[in-house]
Amino acid sequence: MPIFIQKTLYSLSLLLGVTFISFMLMVYFGPDRSYAIAGKNPDAAQLEEIRQQLGYNQPLTSRYLGYIKDLASFNLGLSESSGKPVARLLAETIPTSLLLLLPGFLIGNLLALMLAMIAAWYKHSWPDRLLTNLSLLGVSISFLIIIIVLSTWLCTPQGLNLFPSRGWRVDGLSSWLTYATVPSLALIFVTVFFNLRFYRALLLDEMEQDYIRTARAYGAGPFAIMFSEALPNTLIPILTRLLFSLPAILVSGSLVLESYFGIPGIGKVSFDAIFNADQPVLNAIVSLSAVMIVVVTWLADFIYPRLDPRISQHLVVR
């Protein structure tokens, strides 16, 4: 139990650091809201009063403490551009993003795993080398280019014109397919090539193990070995990796996909918030994703501490 407490405390200290940095960047050095609130041509006394109300005159520490208190009590404030409560904004848009991203993310990873199995089985012979070369090629193509090529090809009169090029009016499977197919294809492409070599290395390591060599020597076939021996033993690192890439996909992936395809998800919301300097929204997104990442790390630390030195080392509290 002490280790559990230690790690939890450590995770909390990480959160403290993250919130401090986001406070400094977005509140302390962030936009001065007094002018916006005061309207045109305010006089000095008015401004001063507003600044007083916003707490701008208080010392740094008490402002920071107030900031944390608001976050912890989920008091996220109102969006400045739309006037909606931030919490509601998030509640509306996060499901959209999940609907948009999760299927492609999962399919992409499954596909990567399948291809990695093929590569690992045919280690060092042509299927393996082909896949390795392809994946190097694949990761070198920018996500943007994939999106643009796919959407030009599938969504414009220049190409096949099968899908709408923008928008999101989803109320069922067929409408989901209409709007989500092209973004998902782009996501699948990136996910496959991003993960293929990692999974291959993982499976290869496992195939070096004695028990698999023995199984092979006794003539067990590729399916038997892969699905009943190698896969179960690599499941934990695979799951950990999935968990770890989820926050990044949700925040960064959605930012690009949703702003390009005009989909009203969390990425679009953050995109708009960035350009309107909508501080309460940005704050909420940064803090929530940081919490998510810290929680994932904290979880992974218990599931599987030894996946990769980059992951395992960073939560060892001494």
Binding site: S22, G30, P31, S252, S270, V286, S289, I293, V294
Partner: peptide
Amino acid sequence: GVMEAIPFYLFVAAVAYA
């Protein structure tokens, strides 16, 4: 750990603004 917990693109946006 702190730096890795901050979503990169949003961080850049915030730095760019600050």
